[in-house]
Design a protein around this nucleic acid. Sequence first.
DNA 1: TGCATTTCTTCACATTTGTGAAGTGCTCGG
DNA 2: CCGAGCACTTCACAAATGTGAAGAAATGCA
Lengths: 193, 193
Amino acid sequence: MNRYFEVFFDYVRLLVDIPEIDQDICRTYFKPLQLKKDSIISPAGKIPEFHNFIVSGYMRNYYVDEKGQEITTDINDGPRFFTSYDAFMYRKISKENLHCITDCELLQISRDAVDITAKLGITQQEYTLQILQQQLEKNKQRAVDLTTLSAEQRYAKLIKNSPAIIKNIPLKYIASYLGINPGSLSRIRKTLA
Amino acid sequence: MNRYFEVFFDYVRLLVDIPEIDQDICRTYFKPLQLKKDSIISPAGKIPEFHNFIVSGYMRNYYVDEKGQEITTDINDGPRFFTSYDAFMYRKISKENLHCITDCELLQISRDAVDITAKLGITQQEYTLQILQQQLEKNKQRAVDLTTLSAEQRYAKLIKNSPAIIKNIPLKYIASYLGINPGSLSRIRKTLA
DNA sequence: TGCATTTCTTCACATTTGTGAAGTGCTCGG
DNA sequence: CCGAGCACTTCACAAATGTGAAGAAATGCA
């Protein structure tokens, strides 16, 4: 299971240094978990129990709209945290489902444990601040792309920036994430080929 | 100038309580500023000097793309913080311009002062965390709206949720913010009337 | 007030994207 | 190995939105 924490700490160190003490805290409170393809963790209608870090595998975040359609709101590209953060943090009922598109390896921490580690360690608050800023910038950029780029340009940009997603995620989820009809995306793919 | 801080504290109290000590700190380090319509503060190409709170008035955030077109990425609806936050925080060159669409009343704090107040007061870090989360949720929702709603639905939603924006902001900026061509928006307005 | 500028609307037409049905190919469990 | 279901493509057509020019309306300034 050490590999899990290697991936985890490598990811965290992109934003902050982690002293040994905090590493030990993480090893104590984060629990490894393997999930099979198509597992649903943190289903809509429930309060998310865990904050998840994806060590390997691909997940998506989706909700079901009034017409019964699945809307994919997020897809991961490599290791990162993946949680309905707002609902998790404030113990609110989530509207979203976290769906393992492939087999996944996770590190999970419970909501109670997050409060404990916040007091024990010194890195957590600073890290949380930074990752929130990073996520905010990403989402701002996503919104700008959606207002300024055509469907074809959005797809081309995803190929360029996240080839791993194209290779590993069914097209229908990508289409939903990009706000493109699957049929239209198919046509766009043909013109790009 | 007390009115400025009344608006300011009322806004901050939506997320956290502010002890007297922290209120005094704010009164010391935030400076009131009046701006005329069409002033540009924090222009693209420079490091933002101040973190801005809009007491009254309307501002937009825009950048100029490769074709020379202005892309409006944010418009405020009532009092709130309005800053190229990432660039301000990390003293990076900003790509965005903050433009006063109407006369504006602001409270400003310098980047150096933010570090000072962080040490003096007790509310700031908690507040920053919360407002980042709030902004993140807003931007996620904006992205979801852009993927799932038609141009007409996006405009209708803006009318419903932010009538003040419709009343006070030139349509061309609203169109850009919604990712709609001004001509198309004009047509949409006619069908809604 | 009156002129100049900007903003908004309107129109005809082009382009992009959506829609639903049908067909093809793949995958996975039995 | 087979068949059912799923994912993806393809197509013809519909609908939504973009485009650029022209005019109307509003705004700001002298």
